Simulated scan of single mutants.
Amino acid sequence: MKKMTNEIIRAMSETFEGQPWYGDSVMRKLENVPYVIGYKTCIPESHSVAQIVGHLIAWKKFAAKKMSGCKDCHLEKDSEEDWPNIDVHSREEWEELKRELVAAQSSIYEILNEQEDDSFLQKKVDGKDYDFGALLKGLIQHDIYHLGQIGLIESQLKKKEIDSGIFRT
């Protein structure tokens, strides 16, 4: 039986592309961020929305690799792989980045759907001190955390650019 696995898939889906109780999902929020602010930051030391999306992709890919049995897969926190330097200068680049995020999320769904039962969730992630259930719940929390950052960046930049016509009022 896959009761817990199906619940994790449902929660991931709701957070990523659904209608969570707290507001917009990740993809709904990103669909409302114009590409022209995707590479901008509020302050020079902060990450852009595009960099946050790259960071989400990196962790989703890491999780999918670990779930697929990769023993040599690592993602060092605060490394260039963890926080890729991504600049988006066209609508096409922005759309491609979002497609890459969707593909990374979809690979996790595919792996979870292949599981025969919930026992997979209790298996320890190779090289880590947590199991796959904790990893997957952590990905949900990670999405929500960075969704808040994206919303904050969007609202700050929106205030700066409302007169430029980028945002409709």
Score class of each variant (00 low, 15 high):
residue 78 D to G: 04
residue 88 V to I: 12
residue 94 W to M: 11
residue 74 H to C: 08
residue 67 M to L: 15
residue 66 K to E: 02
residue 66 K to M: 02
residue 75 L to P: 07
residue 71 K to P: 03
residue 91 R to I: 08
residue 87 D to I: 13
residue 68 S to W: 02
residue 78 D to V: 06
residue 63 A to L: 01
residue 81 E to W: 02
residue 76 E to A: 05
residue 64 A to Q: 02
residue 87 D to N: 09
residue 63 A to C: 03
residue 74 H to W: 06
residue 65 K to Q: 14
residue 79 S to D: 04
residue 66 K to L: 05
residue 91 R to C: 08
residue 76 E to P: 00
residue 82 D to M: 06
residue 64 A to P: 01
residue 82 D to T: 02
residue 58 A to E: 07
residue 79 S to H: 03
residue 91 R to Q: 13
residue 73 C to S: 12
residue 83 W to R: 13
residue 86 I to G: 09
residue 57 I to M: 08
residue 69 G to H: 11
residue 91 R to H: 10
residue 90 S to M: 03
residue 89 H to W: 01
residue 65 K to N: 06
residue 61 K to W: 04
residue 90 S to V: 03
residue 71 K to N: 12
residue 84 P to V: 14
residue 73 C to T: 10
residue 76 E to H: 01
residue 92 E to A: 15
residue 67 M to I: 00
residue 60 K to E: 11
residue 69 G to R: 10
residue 84 P to L: 14
residue 56 L to Q: 11
residue 93 E to P: 05
residue 68 S to F: 01
residue 92 E to N: 10
residue 88 V to R: 02
residue 95 E to I: 13
residue 83 W to I: 15
residue 81 E to Y: 04
residue 64 A to K: 07
residue 82 D to W: 05
residue 88 V to Q: 01
residue 69 G to F: 09
residue 62 F to L: 07
residue 62 F to H: 08
residue 69 G to D: 14
residue 70 C to Y: 09
residue 86 I to M: 07
residue 56 L to W: 09
residue 64 A to D: 04
residue 60 K to H: 13
residue 70 C to T: 06
residue 84 P to I: 10
residue 62 F to M: 07
residue 68 S to T: 06
residue 63 A to Y: 03
residue 67 M to N: 06
residue 66 K to A: 11
residue 80 E to P: 01
residue 77 K to E: 11
residue 80 E to H: 04
residue 79 S to P: 06
residue 84 P to A: 12
residue 61 K to F: 01
residue 72 D to V: 05
residue 78 D to Y: 14
residue 86 I to P: 09
residue 84 P to C: 11
residue 63 A to K: 00
residue 65 K to T: 01
residue 76 E to F: 05
residue 56 L to H: 14
residue 85 N to K: 15
residue 71 K to H: 12
residue 68 S to L: 15
residue 82 D to V: 06
residue 68 S to E: 12
residue 91 R to V: 07
residue 65 K to R: 13
residue 66 K to I: 01
residue 81 E to M: 14
residue 71 K to A: 14
residue 59 W to S: 02
residue 79 S to T: 05
residue 59 W to I: 00
